[in-house]
Amino acid sequence: MTEHRDYRQDLASIRLAMERSVKFLSLSGLSGVLAGLYALAGAALAWRTIYFPHPPYGYRQHYINDHQVLVKLIIVAAIVLLLSLATGYYMSQRKAKKLGVSIWNKTSRDFLGNLFIPLISGGLFIIIIIYRGYFALIAPACLIFYGLALINASLYSVREIRYLGFSEIFLGILAALWPGYGLILWSVGFGLLHIIYGLRMYYRYDREKSI
């Protein structure tokens, strides 16, 4: 019987070594939840700027023509992005320390490298469409490029990242079909989905092991 357990442990150790050597597992679930909350706060601010006093779920007919409104929205979006990245870095570093690995290793390099190629392409594309005034495409472009970035990087992390990526692309296509619902779909994609998947990752990987 002891031999039986030994072979099983051999197989388990193979699996562990493969997974730990390929996947960036220090990614923190809670940082996803926080990023979602920042996005919702940012979306609420955007709603106040664009729609107030109308409710956010109405289909919007008019464009953002006011230059000041546009600048304000871009600043809000940039703050949400920076806060999310900083939180993600800080919390993943803490988790890496608990796991006894460094934050900057082969797996995190592979993960970030694959994440940032579509992300930076999307960022440049969005800057150009803002400059050209195609505001209706901003929300769908954000969602679709972010989704592609996640799917591209998901090979190097937990599988939830892949599902999150598909969901973001789906929302992005909806946002392209109904540009008037851009803000509400953006809030679902960057707010709600981050909270849901973040909690799922937290309960699945961070809490139970409590390393």
Partner: peptide, 23 residues
């Protein structure tokens, strides 16, 4: 066995990263 597992799953792996993964 674990070293071989890492090396079949990755094209190459360096000494320090191996040390980290296998502890």
């Amino acid at each position: 066995l674990q070293i071989m597992s890492v090396l079949v799953a990755n094209e190459t792996y360096d000494f320090n990263s191996l040390k980290e993964v296998l502890q």
